[in-house]
Simulated assay, not measured.
Amino acid sequence: MQTIDKVKSAGLAKFTSLVYLYTGLGIALWTISVQAIANNQALSMVIFQGMAQHRIISMILMIGIPFAFISICSRLATKSYFLTFLSYVGFIVTLSVIGVPIFYMYSARSIVQTLTVTAGAFVVSAVIGFVTKKDLTTWSRTLFTGLIAIIVVEVINGLIFHSTPLLMLTSAAVIILFLFYIAFDSQNIKRIYQNYSDSESLGAIALVASVSLVLDFVNLFMSIIQIFGDSN
């Protein structure tokens, strides 16, 4: 019995390490991709003009496409590692386009400082979520409701009010929400491993698990820099 428990613990530790490795690589790829696009002025202007001329469509795409890639990754995970990886890269590229205005508007110093702060907050929240004995699945409905409410407020503010104080308020709410989401998704790694521990596609499953964590990090970063960043 002890031998079985040791094997399970070793398997979970390996799977968790793989998830966070993919998460770190995903965040690094996102950062590099956003900076590369932001440094290309012609491409950046095309993105800005598209967002300005088709604001409603842009908002729908910015919300819908990342979630579509998450769904695709989940569907492909047990079928093909390669296709799951391609979907993962597509997800990162989509997030990169969304992040271009942030990297274009804020100074390099602010970006580096905010990335550092976000990484620290991410690690703390992830550790708390992973080691806590409390079952965080009870948070699922509350977190999702909070996410929908914030999206609705941001869309309304972007289309109608254009209020900076409201933008700051929603950014603060997003910071709090995604700190909880990081803890939730970190604990969820254990549940994912329990469900797929016998699968031959653990590498692809780890990619899927890391997608949510990358999304959590990016949302946390973008909200922190909107409040505390040194805008150009």
Score class of each variant (00 low, 15 high):
Ser71Asp: 13
Ala121Gln: 06
Ala42Asn: 11
Gly120Asp: 10
Ala42Ser: 11
Leu147Thr: 15
Asn188Gln: 13
Gln194Met: 14
Ser197Ala: 15
Phe122Gln: 02
Leu167Cys: 03
Lys14Leu: 12
His54Glu: 14
Pro101Lys: 10
Leu12His: 05
Leu177Thr: 03
Gly120Glu: 06
Ile111His: 04
Asp230Gln: 15
Thr94Met: 14
Thr116Phe: 08
Leu167Pro: 02
Lys8Ala: 14
Trp139Thr: 08
Ile128Arg: 01
Ser87Lys: 04
Gly26His: 09
Ile111Ala: 09
Ser197Pro: 06
Ser87Arg: 01
Ile27Glu: 10
Ser74Gln: 14
Ser199His: 01
Thr132His: 07
Ser58Pro: 05
Gln35Cys: 09
Ile224Asp: 03
Ser171His: 03
Thr164Lys: 12
Ile175Phe: 11
Phe82Leu: 15
Met105Arg: 13
Ile102Pro: 00
Gly90Arg: 03
Ile192Arg: 08
Val211Arg: 05
Gly90Lys: 08
Tyr181Cys: 12
Ile4Thr: 09
Ile27Arg: 00
Gln2Arg: 09
Asn232Asp: 15
Arg55Met: 15
Val93Ala: 13
Lys79Arg: 08
Leu202Glu: 09
Gln194Ser: 14
Ser71Gly: 12
Ser186Val: 05
Thr137Phe: 08
Lys14Phe: 10
Asn188Ser: 12
Gln226Ser: 14
Val100Ala: 02
Arg55Tyr: 07
Ile65Tyr: 05
Arg141Cys: 09
Phe122Val: 00
Lys133Ile: 12
Thr118Leu: 07
Ser223Phe: 09
Gly229Thr: 11
Leu61Asn: 03
Leu29Met: 08
Asn40Cys: 10
Tyr81Gln: 11
Ser17Pro: 03
Asp135Tyr: 05
Asn40Gln: 13
Ser71Pro: 00
Met51Thr: 13
Val112Pro: 04
Phe48Arg: 12
Met168Trp: 11
Gly229Tyr: 07
Ala77Leu: 07
Val112Met: 07
Phe69Asp: 10
Ala52Ile: 07
Gly24Pro: 02
Gln187Asp: 03
Thr84Ala: 04
Lys79Met: 03
Val19Met: 03
Ser33Asn: 01
Ile224Cys: 04
Phe85Met: 07
Thr170Gly: 01
Ile160Leu: 15
Phe82Trp: 12
Leu213Glu: 06
Tyr106Thr: 03
Ala13Gly: 06
Tyr20Glu: 06
Tyr20Pro: 03
Phe69Asn: 07
Val131Met: 02
Val124Trp: 05
Ala38Val: 10
Ile63His: 02
Ile98Asn: 11
Leu83Ala: 13
